[in-house]
């Protein structure tokens, strides 16, 4: 297998792990962790594509950097949301967050 495929498969592995995690996890923090896994996969795929194909190298790296920035922003926001949820409902488990349920 060529290096590009190998790196892409690794990225896919991250995506799959993240998806699995998001479905199986029951707490918001666990889901956040899974999302981070997926974002990492995205970054890895971007960089691999940029480094090993005729595409512009810098763009891939910039893309990965922006993904990291977004991940940081997202983590901040999710942290705040988790705090609010935990404070209001006394738990950060998704099953208990059911205020809108009829």
């Amino acid at each position: 297998m060529s290096p590009l495929t190998l790196f892409h498969l690794a990225a896919l592995l991250l995506l799959a792990l993240g998806l699995m995690g998001i479905v199986t996890r029951r707490s918001l923090v666990g889901m956040l962790i899974s999302v981070e896994l997926m974002l990492n996969g995205a970054g890895l795929a971007l960089v691999a594509s940029a480094r090993l194909t005729p595409a512009v190298d810098e763009l891939g790296q910039l893309g990965a950097l922006l993904v990291m920035g977004l991940a940081a922003a997202e983590a901040t926001l999710v942290l705040a949301i988790i705090l609010v949820v935990a404070r209001r409902l006394g738990s950060s488990e998704t099953a208990r967050v059911s205020e809108l349920k009829g």
């Binding site: 290096p3 590009l4 498969l9 896919l12 592995l13 998806l19 199986t24 090993l52």
Partner: peptide, 25 residues
């Protein structure tokens, strides 16, 4: 469910990655 959710896209995308690989440098 998690396994399905994880493995389905993995399988599809892996097929794409392996068979439709772009020109490589």
């Amino acid at each position: 469910l998690g396994l399905i959710a994880g493995l389905t896209p993995l399988a599809i995308l892996a097929w794409v990655v392996v068979h439709k690989a772009p020109t490589e440098l």
